[in-house]
Design a protein around this nucleic acid. Structure first.
Lengths: 366, 366
DNA sequence: TTGAAAGCGTTACCAG
DNA sequence: CTGGTAACGCTTTCAA
């Protein structure tokens, strides 16, 4: 056995070479020839039309089947869908970021529901890159997919996606802010109300200085969320202190650093609101490192209720949002439109609610 | 605006219907007609053969381009790959479980590397369902994908996947235990050594009663891992107490329940080894709930070093394994074999190492 | 009950 | 420089 070092970090073992037979993929014609029938007959057998439309003699049927298994024939999906002018049994999913558990859950929901309906999933992540998003949309246009589920980072492109695909009479579902004439599953609807609810909760616990971990994949886009909190602050007569808003990225590390910065503010905020749970997890680490105890010294609130939220120490107060359901509903919308193309546009909201857990508590009198 | 309640949990708004034009997708012929050229010419322009093989007059080129943008023509990928007899620019990824962050990191790595190489990702999760795994493999056989990355749950099927796809001269990469004649990225290689290393670490800290959270997606399959610990125990002269092995599922909740059960053992174990970080997170919650402090009262070790591991309270001692790199390397193997089909079979190992963090500490003298 | 033949939208070869 | 034309692998109508 020969050892070979391929790359700095990677040890690779090269086994003895086995010459693969360059076996050509068998075609319908090969099967027909092997079975001594015509190609049409093979098609009938494969598609199970044997019993309904056309009838095939028992013996021919078996001969064909035998040839199929013998040759390991599998029909070419490209040719099938090309010829029969339609379904590719594929739906596309475009997500902004694969690092946040929130999006995995959406993807997972989509995958499950799609599988159940017999569709395969083509997954793209734009990674916050506008060019890539555009490129992906273009790729999606050539590819014949039966439906597309979009969670765009750059809403400006929505019109393009719409043009490219919806016009082709292809079901498109938007995840996020609904767009005219397209089915949608609203992502995090009622953000406003929950911002208010969270604020009310913290206010009631005595919090007056509240920090924001405003970590977004793209700062420009979701400015609306901050406004929700601005308004909520106002309703409780609290001033908006911009130094308490930390604008950062959307990773664990961003949450960690943001919390460090916010904790350095004087006077120290007594509560932190984090745009999502992932950031909150990062923040929790920073808080613990500085020797603070949650919620005694500091309260923290997340958003999304990712699976881990309930398992953190302390369990995280957050807004529950069923990301899995988003995926399921999105696929259902696709299926519904596939079945009935002219149905009215539908927007689905997944209910959300505040989950009070142990990460929020009263302000310590001192 | 009309409100309609679609399902128990779901509020849906039905907007006014907008009659979509049933615009037929424009074909190459449509473009040719619009530009007043032949279909071949359109093909040349689209594929940029204009400069190399054939040359197209400036004016014709522009006329064609104009028609293309005018009609929003996008070549049909099915027809293209069918005719040019090959590349579909798609690679398939088959994963056992979409709920574990570990697999997501693999998927994320695959997605990135594939995108960079211009490939789209077809994602499947078998969800531990043997039928589904088989079904998926069959679907994959009809679909013409350029490469397949497999992390099988049921190794028995490997031979089938191999037959169906590798024989078609299609690059297949195995994630996990290498299989003869197939490229592979070993998943968690050196499990044995790390089991030993972990045990040595705990032993040195004075731990003698060590519990196992043996939470697997499929119990039968990975029995080998437990043996690694059995052997390690033996090497340190510790008896294997089967009551300290909790066989459970692979979710957060499984880890949580397992820890509760293990903590009820008398005498209580002083350390827990968890098959992965996810289970460890679940366990941590149980430990905290029972009022224990980690690592003072109890040590815990995970495996995988998922992103959150370093952010937990306390940060988790675990074995670092770069799941992202698994994805990247797997795609690189596909690409290499695509370029050079007869290259020797290669097995890649991603280096791992024990990450000592604060979740393990000495046994409290009492 | 089976087969011939006409495409589906594309590419690539060979004439003009 | 450009335009026929034959495939690619399949489905489906129409005849036999």
């Amino acid at each position: 056995m020969l050892f070979l070092l391929t790359r700095v970090n990677t040890l690779s073992l090269v086994h003895q070479q086995v010459p693969c037979m360059p076996t050509k993929r068998p075609t319908q014609a090969d099967v027909a020839r092997a079975a001594g029938v015509s190609r049409a007959t093979v098609s009938y057998v494969v598609n199970g039309l044997a019993n309904s439309q056309v009838s095939i003699s028992r013996t021919t049927y078996q001969r064909v089947q035998a040839a199929i298994t013998e040759l390991e024939y599998h029909p070419d999906a490209r040719a099938q869908s090309l010829r029969s002018g339609g379904a590719t049994n594929t739906i596309g999913l475009l997500l902004p970021d694969m690092h946040n558990p929130f999006y995995w859950k959406i993807a997972s929901g989509v995958e499950q529901e799609a599988q159940n309906a017999g569709f395969d999933l083509l997954l793209f992540s734009t990674s916050l890159n506008a060019e890539r998003e555009e490129h992906t949309l273009r790729a999606l246009a050539r590819r014949q997919i039966d439906g597309l589920i979009l969670n765009l980072t750059f809403p400006g492109r929505i019109s393009e996606a719409l043009k490219l695909l919806a016009r082709r009479h292809n079901p498109v579902v938007i995840l996020g802010k609904p767009v005219p004439n397209l089915d949608a599953v609203e992502v995090k609807p009622g953000y406003q109300e929950h911002a208010h609810e969270i604020m009310a909760h913290l206010f009631a616990l005595g919090h007056r200085r509240i920090g924001f971990i405003y970590g977004l994949v793209n700062q420009e886009i979701d400015a609306g969320r901050l406004n929700a909190y601005r308004e909520a602050l106002q309703m409780f007569g609290l001033p908006m202190d911009e130094t308490l808003v930390d604008r950062c990225g959307a990773t664990l590390a961003d949450g960690y650093r943001a919390a460090h910065r916010l904790l350095a503010c004087k006077p120290r905020p007594t509560a932190l609101i984090s745009l999502n749970d992932l950031l909150a997890i990062g923040a929790l680490r920073a808080i613990h490192e500085q020797g603070f105890t949650v919620p005694r010294d500091l309260s923290i609130v997340g958003f999304d209720n990712i699976d881990m939220a309930a398992y953190l120490h302390p369990p995280l107060t957050t807004v529950h949002y069923d990301a899995n359901a988003v995926g399921h509903e999105a696929v259902k919308l696709i299926l519904a439109r596939l079945k009935e193309p002219e149905r009215p546009v539908q927007v689905i909201q997944i209910p959300t609610h505040l989950m009070l857990r142990a990460s929020t508590g009263p302000v310590l009198e001192s």
